Amino acid sequence: MRIATVPLQDRFVRLEPFEDGLRDEVRAALDCDQAAWAIMVGPAWGEHFDGWWTAALAAMQAGTRIAYAVRRLSDGVVVGTTSLYEINPAYRRCEIGSTFYRPEARGGVINPACKRLLLGHAFEAGAVRVEIITDAINTQSQAAILKLGAKAEGVLRKHKITWTGRARDTAVFAVIDDDWPAVRDGLDRRLAAFA
């Protein structure tokens, strides 16, 4: 499995791998909704952005993450970020995460469009498993993940420590290669309804 660091695009979004020219647009997209950052593992708003950005680029350099700016094609605005990360070629697996969208970009076409692109990219590169994890207290995120077609696999207790010091339980979901054709078809039907 070798997942290429390339832009991904459909009718709704363009996922652009992080590079210096995107820094200010990504900063502007993330510098909002401080309450939402409270349950994230690491913050990226305000004074936290520079360290987060540097860590994302370092992980990209190491080959363990592809961080993307999410550009909404209807107006050309960067409305958030998402990543393929924890990339493990030996096990042919990765995760989708570090996802944050501006409030006005939530609940519509952006998330399913991004997930369709990311899942397709991973499976086309030879992945056999793509995980999507979230905080166990984030029921809205869990509902969105299930709606994508991922299967719930359980909760990892005290799996991560958030930037606020809370021991976080993590809800684990996954799509495996056997599931992908049905998940892909479901996402394609959802996206067709937005056209």
Score class of each variant (00 low, 15 high):
I96W: 01
A122D: 08
A105S: 15
R93Y: 06
A182L: 10
T170D: 02
I137Q: 13
E86Q: 14
R65Y: 03
E19D: 15
E47L: 11
P112R: 09
F123S: 06
I3Q: 05
G51E: 03
A193V: 09
G120M: 03
G51R: 08
A193Y: 13
A105V: 11
M40L: 12
F49V: 04
G51A: 13
T164Y: 13
A4S: 14
D10I: 04
A56S: 10
T64Y: 01
R72A: 15
R166D: 11
G46P: 02
R92M: 14
M40C: 09
V155A: 12
F123E: 04
G63K: 00
R92N: 04
T139E: 14
L187H: 03
F123C: 06
I3K: 01
R168P: 00
E95W: 07
C94A: 13
A55F: 09
G42C: 05
M60H: 02
V70I: 15
R11V: 00
R2I: 07
V109G: 05
A143R: 14
I96K: 05
D10H: 09
R184A: 15
I110G: 03
A58P: 01
R189W: 10
L30D: 02
A38C: 01
A122C: 11
A44M: 11
L191C: 07
V130T: 02
P112G: 12
A144W: 05
R14E: 08
D33Q: 11
A167I: 00
C94R: 01
D10G: 03
L8I: 00
D178F: 06
T64C: 01
V70A: 07
D188Q: 13
A44C: 12
V128Y: 14
M40V: 05
L148A: 02
F194I: 13
A28S: 13
I132G: 11
K147T: 01
D20L: 07
A192C: 10
D10M: 03
F123L: 14
C32I: 02
G107D: 10
L187K: 05
A125R: 04
A90R: 09
H121W: 12
T162P: 00
P43T: 08
E95V: 01
Q34A: 14
Y101W: 07
L57P: 02
A59P: 00
H159I: 00
A144Q: 04
W180T: 07
A69L: 07
C94Y: 06
L57E: 03
D75V: 13
V13H: 08
